[in-house]
Design a protein around this nucleic acid. Structure first.
Lengths: 255, 255
DNA sequence: ATCCGGCTATTACTCCGACATATTACAGGA
DNA sequence: TCCTGTAATATGTCGGAGTAATAGCCGGAT
């Protein structure tokens, strides 16, 4: 395993003077950075399910961090179902079906490297199931405020394209607003997951296609149906939207 | 806040001799127990979103545990989106829409106390969306092994009733087998969530109804449709199953 | 030869106390 | 009133010491 830049805070220069600080991304704490690093390593397959990580002391030393920081990172991974630690046995990578793949962080780690084609397809299949149903509920339950937020997101998408961060954020806001309008907490949780999927795949599409299809009409149709309070039309429109998005993404991933 | 039994390991008797060990559930580590305790406190509304927990030192002292153990517990809660810690600001409970409500642990904490009626309804609404679609996919993609597992779970449900732990486990296995047969990792993740919902609500129903409806016919219909490879019939049958389960649960929760 | 039960070495788990860092909140000045 | 510098404070990180649990080995019984 290549030992790239150490994550440590208090590493010293050759002359012994303490180096002020190591760059590790703003606002992110050390144990968070370790969790990030380990999470990506696991999601990318660098550690396979069943593998045993080297012991706490060894690993912490290799990363040049304290055992406390390393342990806190492992607790995070444990909480997300990626690993399990037991005395004498060590810390082992859990089987894939125990992973919390819909956790926002895990999702981010999964898309940090080269995204797995099959997993992207799985996510779209889930979207194709959940989002039309959500649109149906939203058409029944939305209030004026929901519609306002959707309209605003839609206009923001028009102004900025999906090539910009702002545009992608608006896209996510639009879908998020729909899920929010379902008034269902269990569905709302999927916002982060679906939003991440939307975001990453959109970004990926953008990378490999010169002239992406204009997404506004599809979104507008969904909005109109929800605003009109027509559940069936909303579900249908959203179904079309996801289907088209899947086609675009699929064609972008195998050039 | 009532200070019940301390979680500490190394508390001493009055004469100073160390007490061998404190009961805190088998196989569960100290920080896990703290996370459990805090998680239930948050999910039960004892701490509201926006509330600030007392400082690490104070809280750790109150629980009679070391700061390390307390911190590791907080990292777990942070990983599940329940809280966020910042220097100087303290550890605050996050708004509800950031909570990972589908996380198995969070779900368990949510159902540890009195389950929130609205949340149960939300979960069933999600089931009503996901499970029929999953049954449809399963009917298309299941192989012989999937069917074998489903059949076995079905027979186990017949032998033991839903009043027994074994029976409930078989129920969960049945639904889990269907999700597994979709060959979709993103859907499979919902196994834990849906399984938990199924389990807790079933248990709850059992508590308050003398003569619950026989669930076998519904499940059998779903199995037959999947075995026959009929997607539409499978989706329909599953839709009926969830609908009936919802009715039973609803009537059980408001006597 | 196989299975069961106790032993031991290894590993994670917990505790402690000190120091570093970040950020809020306040005070002072423009 | 607003901005800027500063100090207080809670989290973050560190290193080390000691405890507890268990996986895997070994010996004995079947």
């Amino acid at each position: 395993m290549a030992k790239d830049k150490p994550l440590s805070n208090d590493s010293e220069a050759d002359d012994g003077r303490p180096v002020p600080k190591q760059t590790r991304g703003p606002g992110r704490r050390l144990h968070g950075a370790i969790a990030h690093k380990l999470g990506m390593a696991i999601l990318s397959g660098q550690y396979a399910p069943g593998d045993t990580l080297s012991g706490e002391v060894a690993f912490a030393e290799e990363l040049e961090v304290s055992r406390s920081a390393y342990r806190e990172a492992v607790q995070v991974l444990t909480a997300k179902g990626l690993v399990e630690s037991r005395p004498k046995a060590g810390t082992r990578v859990m089987p894939r079906n125990r992973w919390n793949l819909l956790d926002p962080d895990v999702l981010a780690w999964a898309f940090a490297g080269e995204p797995d084609l099959q997993f992207v397809r799985d996510l779209f299949e889930l979207r194709a199931i959940v989002e039309p149903a959500a649109a149906r509920l939203a058409a029944q339950r939305r209030d004026r405020e929901d519609l306002r937020i959707m309209k605003e997101a839609l206009m923001a998408m028009r102004r900025h394209t999906l090539a910009t961060d702002i545009g992608r954020a608006a896209d996510r806001d639009f879908h998020s607003a729909i899920l929010n309008a379902t008034r269902n907490d269990a569905i709302l949780v999927l916002t982060a997951s679906i939003g991440a999927a939307v975001n990453w795949t959109t970004q990926f599409k953008q990378r490999s296609r010169a002239l992406p299809r204009n997404p506004i009409p599809d979104h507008a149709r969904v909005y109109e149906a929800i605003a009109a309070g027509d559940p069936q039309a909303a579900a249908d429109a959203m179904g079309v939207l996801v289907e088209l998005a899947l086609e675009d993404t699929a064609s972008a991933m195998q050039p």
